[in-house]
Amino acid sequence: MPAINRTALVLVCALCLLGALASSADAVGEKYKYVGFASMSNPQVEGNRAWNQRFSDLTKALFDIKYSSFTRVANKLSLSGFRPKTLSITSEDGDEHMLRPHPDNYKAIDEFHEQVGAMGEVYLSGVCMANSANVLIFDEMPPQYKIDDFVADSMDLLDVRIYAYYKDSNTIGYDFLDLDKPVFKDYSRLKKMMHAKIIQVLEDVMVNQSSLDVSVDPGDGTPASAPASDW
């Protein structure tokens, strides 16, 4: 068994255990739908401190903007049933790490993205359960060669990927933030672009989740679908 798969299996089992515990928390009355966030891995360009700093700022800003935009989007859509949370995983070292951009978490964040790449929805489903989250939103940079090409001026656009994983349908949705070089020199503009994109992603996630929501048959003769549901 390849090392990565063996590790993944251990992790998924651990996640499932956490998930079971979280489910029992659900059962005692947790009413909210949680949208969990995970930071992207901090991109590195060898020997280029300026770009590394820019990417580091980008990583942090992308994560923070999700939190700062969440309530605004929920209010705009009049959806009070959603809550944001930072995802956490139990990494290989056995410690639990939050997946927010901080030097202490970089290794766990890298591990998260490695497992997503290797196991995809199987892993994401486990993370969802472990975190009692309904949707996961995480970002990824393009492959390293594309980053290098961008920095080396061989490519005009850097397409940052924003993934949304929906637990209830085992689906991954894709969104993209296309950044050109000049925008990295205008931080205000970069933040605006990120803001606009994150708001759109959050809107999509919340609208999608609420419109597809179908409550379980209460067994008392009332219709199964919640009144607010489109179904």
Binding site: Y166, S169, G173, D204
Partner: peptide
């Protein structure tokens, strides 16, 4: 179309 994910 109005949704960015479907259901099974």
């Amino acid at each position: 179309g109005a949704k960015n994910a479907g259901l099974r």
